[in-house]
Design a protein around this nucleic acid. Structure first.
Lengths: 139, 139
DNA sequence: AATGGTGATGAGAATCTTTTTCATTACAAG
DNA sequence: CTTGTAATGAAAAAGATTCTCATCACCATT
């Protein structure tokens, strides 16, 4: 029950929040910008303001329902936290995004933080490259 | 000779470019935003426009002299590429940045990219946490 | 079911970062 | 020195995100 997730976050169960959560769950794209969410809602004839989309996504992030990533290009993308954490591989040509999890890296990160006197709370790992598509390989 | 670096990048050796490169070399802060660079130049009575700062930093990035990182907060920071590549540890409370290199992670990243059919060209790893400073530890 | 308090929303303005435009200026080759 | 072309500065524009504030909707209580 999604509405419970919203409630658990200390937020009222309102139409915008329900619709945005639904959209994130049903979206084919995992990584959406606030603008994407806004446009998708418009397409579904949901009259939800862009400011509300930003507010709700930020609240969902604070509640741990959603993760925000700062991509190249200077904007953020959001994705639903489906339990499993993962990192990203991004094609620098076509923008295709793939996800991965690697326990070796996950473990080393925590160790590195400790070695530097830090207590890790989060991390962001994005690998940029050329994907398999021949069109994405430079001469 | 720094001016050679500028020349090698196919750029004219102009006062703004020389001053910005100098500043990056002599800055105590390794990670500076375009705004930071602009303000530092103002402090040195160098009348260089903000637009030029952005232009030059972008050109330096393209030339491989400088690296751009998209930090949380929706802005980018730049740092001089002093040969050695490294990743970042950021304190989520005070903003302190430390650098590290870990060969285990570097190697795994390349392997992961290949496993996914990608050819890695770059990556960005930022570990967020609480640094050693007691003030930066939440109750 | 009606009501009221508080939190949520929408529209637009505001803010912040970055890019573009365009007239002027400065390199650097001859 | 002259002169073509690239570079610059100022201001405007663009893009992403946040803020303001009047209005509205959730929901606990009647």
């Amino acid at each position: 029950m999604d509405n419970q997730d919203i409630r658990k976050a200390g937020l009222k169960v309102t139409l915008p929040r329900v619709k945005i959560l639904e959209l994130l769950e049903n979206s084919t794209q995992r990584h959406v910008s606030a603008e994407d969410v806004y446009k998708m809602l418009i397409d579904k004839d949901e009259e939800i303001g862009l400011a509300t989309v930003y507010r709700v996504l930020t609240q969902f992030e604070a509640a741990g329902l959603v993760t925000r990533q700062n991509f190249e290009g200077g904007y953020a993308v959001f994705e639903l936290d489906r339990g499993g954490h993962h990192d990203h591989l991004v094609c620098v040509v076509c923008g295709k995004v793939e996800e991965f999890v690697d326990t070796t890296i996950e473990k080393r990160q925590r160790e590195i933080a400790n070695e530097h006197g830090f207590e890790m709370v989060d991390h962001s790992l994005i690998i940029y490259g050329h994907c398999g598509n021949p069109k994405c390989h430079v001469g």
